[in-house]
Structure formats: structure tokens, C-alpha cells
Nucleic acid binder design. Structure first.
Lengths: 194, 194
DNA sequence: ATGTGCATGTAAATTGTTACATGATTCA
DNA sequence: TGAATCATGTAACAATTTACATGCACAT
């Protein structure tokens, strides 16, 4: 049932799932076409939420049918394009979702952590190699996120404070991982004992 | 194709996916039956990796067919039960997986962060409510993880150091989120300006 | 002319969860 | 005697990704 709804609820109206609200939120922030929404996701929330084209275009149709966005054709030359904007109902629906008192699932699937968990099956040097690998992975991520900081500051100048907060959260998260790994490596590494 | 493999590779032998290695790893750590594996997952890795019964039992069959574990019937009274242990090939396969130089995907899907990202659509007080909610969620998680610390220390006494490292990583992660939220709330909260 | 980016859309495959089906054992 | 726990297994379902299909615009 190719819906963008979560596990169908008993309720009458088909309720929207998170992917549809992502599309709605991005249109609210100024992404006009499906293509622009995809770009916006890649440039911002991809670190804690991903969404594929195959969710975006049906999502736009769903939101339009629900009256939360309106679309019109806006071809560039002979290249077809549809642009969207939120309706008043759409703005209200977005705020309703944001303030809804519902569980906010936090799902992590981390192959690195998984391997570290089982690392006692390795000898010490190999296990430490794993720890270094996940430290490096987080260090790379911190660099990637820091590179986005100027864009976040630009958004703040536009009155959008919260994307910057999610960025700081991501940086802090990975910095914490780096710190824990560094301490562990120092405690574990000496190898040549006195 | 109900396989526990990742995107089928061109290679001859069906390669095992992460869920199968989780099962193998848990058997290696002493979980003997499907039921015990499920318990072990709930008591340890569930914070960064989940797996359902419907993956465990087929996984055991797959690993047994591949010669990485051996199972035998071990009924408790009239209640049937199968217990497993790793073979030498299984231990080797586990170490091979752990040392393999391959990408270790880090996938996060966090509805809380998502809502925070779009929180500029709300008025300040409502947005802060959201920030407080994710801070509280991480505080709860830290408490849950701290409650596991004694078990991790017991595992360390048994020579299993790495489960404790993943626990410290989880705590540090959520503590970092708490800290960033706290700072943000302080900066943003005053409301009654001087 | 050719590769990259803009642009939309869907079919098929994959991956994973939920719910069901079944039944024994233990404890209150 | 009834609930909780132990124990195994699978069918049906839901959610998401990958790959395909198509074609214009623009720069080199």
C-alpha cells in the first residue's frame, strides 16, 4: 500500500507519516520542487533523517490531495517542472505535528558500535584498530558538519535558529564519541609494559 | 527471498548480513538458544542495533547450514529447545567480519531531531518545549544506560571489555545532547527581558 | 558530442516488523 | 487456575531503497 502513512491507524483519515511531514516542512522552508526538496534534505537533515526520491514525489501528491500544499506547473524552457507552496491548512498541519504529544522514536543502527561490542573476540591490537576506525569515522563526520556551519549561520540570519541547533547537536554527539574513544585508546594502548 | 544477506553480491556463496553476524556473535558470547539471543540483544545492543525473532530463527538455520554454528536438541522437560555453539569456522568467520575493511554504516533516524529542525515554524515557547522534550528523552536514556553499568562491570570481570565501551559511548552521546540543549535553553529562555 | 546537472516519476527488490500459531513450565 | 515466562517458528504486512525509464539544458 505505497502510502506515506505509518502503520495504518483505526482513525478515519489516512494520517501522514514522518516522510510526508519532511516534505511539508521542506516546502515550508522554501524548497519548491521535488528536486529542490531532495537537495535540501541532502544539505541538512540527512545526518539524522534520510528520504529518497521514491518517497518525495508520491509525498507531494499526497499532500496536495490533502490540501496542505498547492502545486502548479512552472516549466523551465521546455523542461517540465512543478512548484509547490504550503497552504494555510498546511502550515497548521505542520505546527500540529511539531507540537503533537507523541513518542519521538530515536532509532540508531550502527555497524561500527556493533563490531566494537563484539571486539573481545579479537586480539588487543585488532580490537584497537576497530576503536580507531570508529573514532576516525566520527572525526570525519565532525569535519563534514563543521563545513556546514556557515550555511547554518546564514539560516540564522534569516530567522531560522533551529537548523543550527541540530547541527550543534550532531557535532557534540560525534565529539563525545571521539573523546570516549581517545580515553579508551590511551588506557588500552601502551602495549610495551614497564 | 527471505535471506539474511545484504544486497546480493555477485560472489558465489551467499554472504551473511549484519543480522546473521549478530546472531553468531551472541552465540559466541554464550547465548545458546534463539530465545536467549533475543534476551541478550534486549539487554545489550538494543540501543544501537535491534533484531526481531523473525530474523533470529532463520539466522540460526542459515548459520548452521553454513557450518558456523552447530545445534542440538536440548528439551527442558517436555518443552522443546535447540541449543547452539560456534564452530571453529564460526569463530573465524566472526573475526573475519570484525576485521573486514568495509564501510560501517551509521544510520540515525531521529524524529525528535527532525521536529527540532523545523521548530522555527513554532513560536518560541512551543519550540523550547520541543527542545526540553529531547533533552528529557536523552536524560531518561542516560539513566537507563547507567542502570546497566553494573552488568557491564561484571562482563569486564569476565574479560569482556568492549560491551562496557559501547555503554560509555552511549552515555557520552546522550550526555552531549543534554549539554547542548541545556545551553540552548539558557540562551533562549529568559522571556522576561530586563 | 558528451558529461553533468535539472527534473519527474515508478516498478521491483530488499529489509525489517508485527502478528499469529502453538504449546510447556513455573509461580502466585 | 490464570498469568508470566520459556520456547520456536512463519505468514503477512509495512516501509524504504535501488534501479530503471525518460528527457531537457548547459557548459566544455
Amino acid at each position: 500500500m505505497r502510502s506515506l502513512s505509518p502503520a495504518s491507524r483505526p482513525s478515519g483519515l489516512a494520517e501522514l507519516g514522518a516522510p510526508a511531514y519532511v516534505v511539508l516542512g521542506m516546502v515550508h522552508l522554501g524548497a519548491r520542487s521535488g528536486y529542490e526538496i531532495k537537495q535540501a534534505v541532502e544539505n541538512s537533515i540527512r545526518f539524522f533523517w534520510t528520504i529518497s526520491q521514491a518517497q518525495i514525489y508520491p509525498g507531494l501528491q499526497l499532500l496536495e490531495a490533502a490540501g496542505l500544499i498547492t502545486g502548479r506547473a512552472d516549466p523551465q524552457g521546455r523542461r517540465p517542472r512543478r512548484v509547490f507552496e504550503t497552504t494555510r491548512a498546511g502550515e497548521a498541519a505542520l505546527r500540529d505535528w511539531l507540537t503533537r504529544d507523541e513518542p519521538m522514536p530515536f532509532e540508531l543502527r550502527d555497524t561500527g558500535m556493533l563490531k566494537v561490542f563484539f571486539a573481545d573476540a579479537l586480539d588487543r591490537e585488532q580490537a584497537l584498530t576497530l576503536v580507531r576506525a570508529i573514532r576516525k569515522r566520527s572525526a570525519d563526520r565532525v569535519r563534514t558538519l563543521r563545513a556546514i556551519e556557515p550555511a547554518a549561520r546564514a539560516a540564522e540570519a534569516d530567522g531560522n535558529l533551529y537548523p543550527g541547533l541540530t547541527l550543534r547537536l550532531g557535532i557534540a554527539y560525534h565529539q563525545a564519541i571521539i573523546d570516549v574513544c581517545t580515553v579508551f585508546e590511551r588506557q588500552s594502548a601502551p602495549s610495551r609494559d614497564g
